[in-house]
Simulated assay, not measured.
Amino acid sequence: MAGSGPGGQSPQGGRTLRWGVVATGRIAHKVTRDLARLEDAQLHAVSSRSQGSARAFAEEHGFAASYHDGPSGSGYQQLFADPRVDVVYVATPHAQHFEVVRAALEAGKHVLCEKPFTVNASEARELVQLAGERNLFLMEAVWTRFLPATRRALELIRGGTIGTVRWVQADLGFPAAYDPADRLWDPAAGGGALLDLAVYPLTWAVAALGFPQRLTAQGHLNQDGVDVQNTLTLKYPEGAAAQLTSSLQAAGPGMATISGTAGWIRTGSPLFNPRTLEICGLDGRIEVEDFHEEAEGFIHELRETARCIRAGLQESPLMPWNETLQVMELLDQAREQLGLRYANDLREAGT
Rank of each mutant, 00 (worst) to 15 (best):
L184V: 10
L215C: 09
H220A: 11
S53F: 06
N273P: 02
Y76F: 13
L38N: 08
G20W: 07
E323F: 07
A64K: 02
S316G: 09
E296R: 07
M319I: 01
L234T: 07
Y67M: 06
R347V: 10
E329T: 00
T233Q: 02
T216W: 14
W167P: 05
W264S: 15
V90N: 15
G160K: 04
A242I: 13
H97R: 14
A170Q: 02
D224Q: 15
A95C: 07
R166C: 11
Q326D: 07
H300W: 04
P270I: 15
C308P: 12
Q42D: 10
Q337I: 12
P116K: 00
T118V: 13
A188Y: 11
R285G: 05
W167S: 07
R158Q: 12
W204G: 11
Y67I: 06
Q96C: 11
A242H: 04
T261L: 13
G210H: 04
Q12Y: 11
A177Y: 12
R26A: 05
F80S: 06
D179L: 09
D82H: 05
I265D: 06
A208K: 02
R303A: 00
L172C: 06
E133Q: 15
L346Q: 08
D171K: 04
C308L: 12
G163K: 09
N230Y: 00
P6Y: 03
A95M: 06
W19M: 13
D345Y: 01
R285E: 14
W185V: 05
T324W: 02
V142N: 08
D40T: 00
G254C: 08
L127I: 14
R335V: 00
Y89S: 14
A188C: 03
V111S: 10
L209E: 03
T231H: 02
L277E: 02
T16W: 09
E296F: 09
D345H: 00
P237V: 15
H44Q: 07
G254N: 14
G268E: 00
T351C: 08
V31G: 04
A103Y: 01
E60W: 12
V101R: 01
H61T: 00
D290F: 10
D290P: 01
L232T: 14
L127K: 11
L197V: 15
S50D: 01
H94I: 15
G108F: 08
I162T: 08
V101Y: 01
F291V: 09
L331P: 06
F291L: 10
I286W: 08
P6M: 04
S72I: 00
F80C: 08
A241V: 13
S53H: 12
W204A: 13
R145W: 10
Q77W: 01
R151P: 04
I27C: 11
Q314S: 14
W143Y: 12
A181V: 12
T144L: 14
S246P: 12
F174M: 08
V85C: 13
G225Y: 07
S4K: 13
L271F: 06
E60F: 13
G8C: 14
G5Q: 04
L338Y: 07
R125Y: 03
W143M: 06
T161K: 15
A81V: 11
A95R: 03
I258H: 03
A58S: 08
H68Q: 09
S72A: 15
V119R: 05
I162M: 06
D69F: 05
V288E: 14
M139Q: 14
L331F: 00
V142P: 01
E114K: 08
F291K: 11
F117H: 06
V199P: 03
L79K: 04
A334M: 05
A131H: 10
E278M: 14
L202Y: 03
A217Q: 01
A334K: 03
V21N: 01
